[in-house]
Design a protein around this nucleic acid. Sequence first.
DNA 1: GCCAACGTTGGC
DNA 2: GCCAACGTTGGC
Length: 158
Amino acid sequence: MNAKKFWLMKSEPDTFSIDDLKRDKTTKWEGVRNYQARNYMMQEMSPGDMVLFYHSNTNPPGVVGIMEVISKAQPDATQFDKKSEYYDPKSSPSNPRWHCIQGKFVKKFAQLISLDDLKTKPELKEMFVLRKGNRLSITPVSAQEFDFIIKWSDALQK
DNA sequence: GCCAACGTTGGC
DNA sequence: GCCAACGTTGGC
C-alpha cells in the first residue's frame, strides 16, 4: 500500500466552491489542462489521499476545507465534449490526454484560512502555494503542513 | 531543439 | 483591470 499523501487543489469558487462540493458530496476534478497537475493526479494520487480545498481568484483567497480522494485518475470526459469549455480537439478516446480523480467532501472549515494568514506561519513557509509566481492548481503538501492547518482550523472553531 | 509570441493564472 | 510569472505553441 502506498502511504497516504496530501495535496492542495485550487478551485475558483465561481466555478466550483466548497459549498458546491458539500452539496454534491462527490466530484470529478475535471478541467485540469496542465501536464504537471495532471501528472500528480495520474501518477501520485491514490484513494485515501487528503486534499486542502483552496479558493483562488477570490477575495480573500485561502483554504476553505478538506476533500478526500476516492478514485484513481480516469479519462476526463470533458475533453471529448465539443460543447465544453475544456474540449481538447487534440485528444481522442483511444488516446486520452487528460485525466482526473474523483473526490468526496470531508469538511468545510468554520472559517477560511486566508493566503495572507498562511504566509505568516514559519511552519508553512515551504508550501508550494506560497511560493512567488506559483500558478500550479495542484501541489503536494507535507503531512506536517497538512496537520498544522487542520489543527489551526480546529483552534479557530473554538 | 530554440525561442518569440501568445495565452492563462491568480494575487493585488 | 493590471500585470508578473510561466506554460504552450509553432515557425524556423
